[in-house]
Amino acid sequence: MDLVAPVIYIVNLVLAVGGAGLGIFAAVDAVSRRSDAFAAADKQTKGTWAGITVGCAVALGLGFFGGAFAPQSLLWLAGLTGSLVYLLDVRPRLREVQRGGRW
Rank of each mutant, 00 (worst) to 15 (best):
G82N: 06
A57D: 13
A40V: 09
A30Q: 09
Y9R: 14
Y9N: 12
L77N: 09
R93F: 00
A59V: 12
V14H: 05
G19I: 08
A16K: 03
V4M: 15
V17G: 04
G101M: 04
A26C: 11
G61E: 07
A50H: 02
L62N: 02
L22M: 15
D36Q: 14
V7L: 15
I10G: 00
A27H: 00
G101L: 06
A37R: 10
G51S: 04
T48R: 14
L84E: 09
L62G: 09
L74T: 15
G55V: 00
R95V: 13
R33P: 10
A41C: 06
G67M: 09
S35H: 11
A5L: 14
S35P: 10
R91M: 06
A26P: 11
L74H: 09
V4H: 12
W76P: 01
L13F: 05
A16D: 08
S32L: 12
A70C: 00
A50V: 14
A59L: 15
W103C: 08
L74C: 00
Y86K: 11
T53E: 10
A5K: 15
A41P: 11
L94Q: 04
L22V: 08
G47Y: 04
A16S: 12
T53Q: 05
I8K: 14
T53A: 08
V14E: 09
G61F: 05
V11R: 13
